[in-house]
């Protein structure tokens, strides 16, 4: 088992005909993801390496039964694309695109919360369920199937931590990159709730960073609702206030959003916090009785 994506995933990629879209879409297919369609307005009827292209998401869904979408279109068209996917009734949309205006995302978020479509991202590396499906740009060769559910705001840091975990023999049920923007579709809490209900996830690792109060709220949620062990990592202890550290969302404003405050909030609720990526793997090993 896994969360969000798995062997039942049927993927439609918005922007499959673009350079990045085709590169990653086809790489997801090589991994074993059931890539059923691509959407590019005006290119319907064509194909990308045998994958049929449609003009609209509605048509792609009607023809192929796609239940998951990856959005890989340029930032100024991405909000529209996510809304189209939701309107076509697709259950899950993973948006990789970075640089979508925050006001667009507020409207998209508010609209989607009133319907049934779940959004992961934007500005995220995607979702990988090792051995089953990959939707996004996570390099799958670092990860194998196993019991750790990994959720992160960052891309390369996720690979770093996944690699440290692999070094200790851990595999993963699912890896979810929720994205580094101020407004993202799925929060740590949304994803951790899914891991809690997933029988194959034995331990949860969350990888946060400065900015906002997501990690603090997650700490309270974990204390109240999560029975599985949770290990956390927070990046940005040395970040000065008022400076955006790369991700649009990674900024300490005033007294809130510091790494210190986040680590303390998590520890106060009994969540162990690793101080380095390798310490995260050490703590995970300790909590799971040295073996995965």
């Amino acid at each position: 088992m896994s969360i969000l994506i798995g062997s039942e995933t049927k993927l439609v990629v918005c922007g499959l005909t673009g350079r990045e879209g085709s590169f990653h879409g086809l790489s997801n297919r090589r991994y074993g993801t059931d890539l059923v369609a691509g959407v590019t307005p005006g290119k319907g009827g064509g194909d990308v390496d045998g994958v049929p292209i449609f003009d609209t998401v509605h048509e792609a869904v009607a023809e192929t039964g796609a239940n998951t979408s990856m959005v890989f279109v340029p930032a100024r068209f991405a909000a529209d694309s996510i809304l189209e996917v939701a309107d076509a009734g697709v259950e899950l949309v993973v948006c990789i695109t970075e640089g979508i205006p925050a006001h667009d995302m507020m409207r998209v978020y508010t609209h989607l919360r009133r319907g049934r479509t779940r959004l992961v991202g934007p500005n995220c590396p995607g979702v990988l369920s090792p051995g089953q499906a990959n939707v996004g740009i996570i390099p799958a060769h670092f990860f194998s199937q196993g019991g750790v559910g990994l959720v992160s705001r960052s891309g390369t840091l996720t690979y770093q931590i996944g690699n440290e975990l692999a070094g200790r023999g851990f595999g993963n049920s699912t890896i979810v990159g929720i994205g580094g923007d101020p407004i993202v579709g799925s929060s740590f809490i949304d994803v951790i709730a899914l891991f809690e209900d997933d029988p194959d996830t034995k331990l949860i690792v969350m990888c946060g960073e400065i900015g906002g109060d997501e990690e603090e709220r997650t700490a309270d949620y974990v204390a109240e609702h999560v029975s599985k062990p949770v290990v956390a990592y927070i990046a940005g202890f040395t970040a000065p206030p008022g400076k955006t550290m790369g991700h649009a969302g990674a900024i300490v404003s005033g007294s809130s959003g510091t790494a210190q405050a986040k680590a303390e909030a998590l520890e106060a609720q009994g969540v162990r916090v690793g101080r380095t990526p390798s310490e995260v793997a050490e703590v995970a090993a300790e909590l799971s009785g040295a073996a995965a």
């Binding site: 960052s154 891309g155 840091l157 580094g180 960073e209 040395t238 550290m245 101080r275 380095t276």
Partner: peptide, 11 residues
């Protein structure tokens, strides 16, 4: 490479 990893490197 990558904002999260760079922040982690600083730490």
């Amino acid at each position: 490479n990558g904002a999260g990893l760079v922040m982690s490197t600083l730490d």
